[in-house]
Design a protein around this nucleic acid. Structure first.
Length: 304
DNA sequence: GTCTTAATAT
DNA sequence: AATATTAAGA
């Protein structure tokens, strides 16, 4: 049931969110309970404009949350009151949303296999609050995923597994390194400064509720539910196909060669859009016997 | 010091 | 289950 998809990058580009699309909402980290208790609702986002070529300039940073906009750049804050938290405080678990993962994949793709190490990936992603460890951990898992993928030539596709990873197309070079991406195609428009929002939080919550066959809180709209439910289900159709006919390729990315000196990564991320805004929202994992675990959710925007 | 991998913890 | 943390080796 796998179809060939050699145009994945086309789709990929199309899916790049435009600056207007992202709502840089700065928000201090308020305690999850607080956030949930007051569950804040998002402004909304405007209809998605077509994928503009790089050079579109945006000014989206206009509307900041009246609530608490400072935190945006600087230290991680945990509670609105104090602002010297970082140290010694445990960060909430990061939730790798499809959007965030996409960013990760983009970063890896653009760095080139060789430079795609946690630190550089992290830098390229330029997601405020994202740590090297976050990336390292994700990278490790992602590599395992790719490896697994190679094992499968035809036939099996484990649908249930790896939903997240399946949500972003795997660049061909990841699988067959023979090709050099540099000279060729794409270069995704521009990274947009990220990120996070409560939209996300709500989406996640709704998705969780949906998954748990629960009834979502009344304030959510159907569209949101649909969107939330959608992500993760498929999104990506036939990304792998004849690629691995021969069985094995040079796993340059999977099994890394000797270390090489790392060089400075120039963040191609939206150099001049607006100031990097980092926001996180704490979210409580609900609907599960989890004991209310706190998570860090970084999320850009919509989904289609 | 960073990276990678495996194992283990939450 | 997903993510974090740690250990050990390069």
């Amino acid at each position: 049931m796998r179809e060939d998809d050699t145009d994945w990058f086309t789709r990929w580009e199309e899916e790049l969110p435009s600056p207007e699309d992202l709502i840089p909402l700065s928000q201090s980290l308020i305690s999850p309970d607080l956030a949930l208790a007051f569950n804040i609702h998002l402004p909304n986002n405007q209809p998605p404009p077509p994928p503009p070529p790089p050079s579109s300039q945006a000014n989206s940073s206009a509307e900041f949350a009246a609530d608490s906009a400072d935190l945006g750049s600087g230290a991680t804050t945990t509670t609105g009151a104090g602002d010297e938290p970082a140290r010694t405080l445990k960060r909430p678990r990061l939730v790798w949303t499809p959007q965030l993962h996409k960013r990760f994949v983009d970063a890896v793709a653009h760095l080139g296999i060789k430079n795609a190490v946690p630190k550089t990936i992290m830098q390229l992603m330029s997601v405020d609050g994202l740590t090297r460890e976050n990336v390292a951990s994700h990278l490790q898992k992602y590599r395992l995923y790719l490896k697994r993928m190679q094992g499968l030539s035809s036939g099996g596709s484990d649908p249930a597994a790896d939903r997240l990873f399946a949500s972003s197309p795997v660049p061909a070079h990841f699988l067959h390194p023979n090709r050099v991406p540099s000279s060729d195609h794409f270069m995704p428009a521009a990274f947009v400064p990220v990120v996070t929002l409560q939209q996300q939080q709500q989406m996640a919550a709704v998705a969780a509720a949906a998954a748990a066959h629960l009834q979502p809180p009344p304030q959510f709209h159907h569209r949101q539910i649909a969107a939330a439910a959608h992500f993760g289900s498929q999104t990506t159709n036939g990304q792998f196909s004849s690629v691995m006919a021969s069985g094995k390729f040079d796993q340059s990315f999977l099994a890394r060669q000797p270390q090489l000196p790392q060089q400075t990564v120039q963040r191609m991320a939206t150099p001049l859009l607006h100031s990097p805004v980092g926001n996180y929202v704490e979210d409580l994992e609900s609907a599960n016997a989890n004991g209310g675990r706190t998570v860090l959710t970084l999320f850009p925007t919509r989904d289609d």
